[in-house]
């Protein structure tokens, strides 16, 4: 990656670092949520955008991280350590699950992931002794990080997630993951260890949602099964990635900014309409922009070859 290609990212990150000095609490909360969606969209992008394995249950790792963070905070761990452990627990859940579920392809994998999210929601609902079931877990304000601390933590996660995608995209792992997306059998036939690569991508893609779930628990100071194992959150991740450009570095960032801004502009005045808008957006992407906004950029237009010598 050249300095020129990462320059916009550095500028954006610096602006985000400076934003709290200029923003109100409300605006800061909006930015925090935007950063969370960037982190989540990039995580989904790592497994689904890169390999084509569409996960409909990535919020399971967000939920696991949220509960891990909330419980660890209650048990006396410092908030920053609870975030680390939340990410670690999500990783420990994802690695063996990846070995099992990534044998499935296409819609079977998508449905298995949807089921995983439902299992997470049910466990959180039914294991009342640990999670307080449907009543949820309110967190004591005294132990919680400040809004500013949450903001900078989420900024770090968004930057880490984007850097991870950039690193993978321009390395051997990314090339092999994209080959898997294009034709898994042919990739295997040129020496790509498809199972190992998919599991690595899947496990890495669970870490950031795990950490983001813990930060979410801290800034909302309350979680319940419905709010953290929310399929709608997964749909948002998918829309953001598809809108910006699947498998790209900056596509999910662009998608997250557009979707969150649209959401922010509509939800208060049109509480029902903003969900309908999301639906319209999904249909529009599928019909008119299947490769995302980034595919419109002039430097990404595909080179069309002239006929090669001897070509018919």
């Amino acid at each position: 990656m050249s300095l020129k290609s990462i320059a916009p990212g550095i500028v954006l990150a610096l602006l985000a670092v400076a934003a709290p000095a200029m923003a109100s609490d409300y605006q800061l909360l909006f930015l925090l949520q935007l950063l969370m969606m960037i982190a989540l969209a990039q995580s989904w992008n790592l497994i689904s955008g890169m390999t084509g394995y569409v996960s409909l249950g990535h919020t399971a790792f967000f939920g696991v991280g949220a509960y891990a963070g909330a419980l660890l905070l209650q048990w006396g761990f410092p908030w920053w350590l609870a975030i680390f452990k939340g990410a670690g627990i999500a990783l420990l859940v994802a690695a063996p699950l990846g070995v099992l579920t990534l044998r499935l392809r296409g819609p079977y994998f998508a449905i298995a992931m949807l089921g995983l999210n439902e299992i997470g929601r049910l466990v959180a609902t039914l294991w009342v002794d640990l999670t307080q079931g449907g009543d949820g877990i309110p967190l004591s304000p005294a132990r919680l990080p400040t809004l500013l601390q949450n903001y900078y933590t989420m900024l770090t996660l968004a930057v880490l997630a984007t850097s991870l995608i950039a690193w993978v995209r321009y390395n051997r792992l990314g090339l092999e993951l994209r080959a898997i997306r294009e034709d898994e059998e042919a990739a295997e036939m040129v020496g790509v260890n498809t199972t190992r690569n998919k599991v690595i991508a899947f496990a890495l893609s669970a870490v950031i949602p795990g950490a983001a779930g813990a930060v979410y628990a801290f800034y909302t100071s309350y979680i319940d099964p419905v709010s953290v194992f929310a399929p709608a959150l997964n749909i948002q991740m998918i829309v953001m990635v598809l809108l910006g450009g699947s498998g790209t570095v900056w596509g999910p960032v662009i998608g997250a900014v557009l979707v969150r801004t649209l959401h922010e502009l509509t939800w208060a005045q049109f509480p029902a309409l903003h969900l309908a808008l999301l639906g319209v957006l999904i249909v529009a992407i599928v019909l008119f922009l299947p490769k995302g906004i980034l595919s419109l950029a002039p430097w990404r237009r595909r080179v069309r070859p002239d006929r090669a010598p001897g070509s018919p």
Binding site: R302, V303, R304, P305, P312
Partner: peptide
Amino acid sequence: VAGSDLSYGQ
């Protein structure tokens, strides 16, 4: 050039 943009022979 993307693989899909080549002729079949290529």
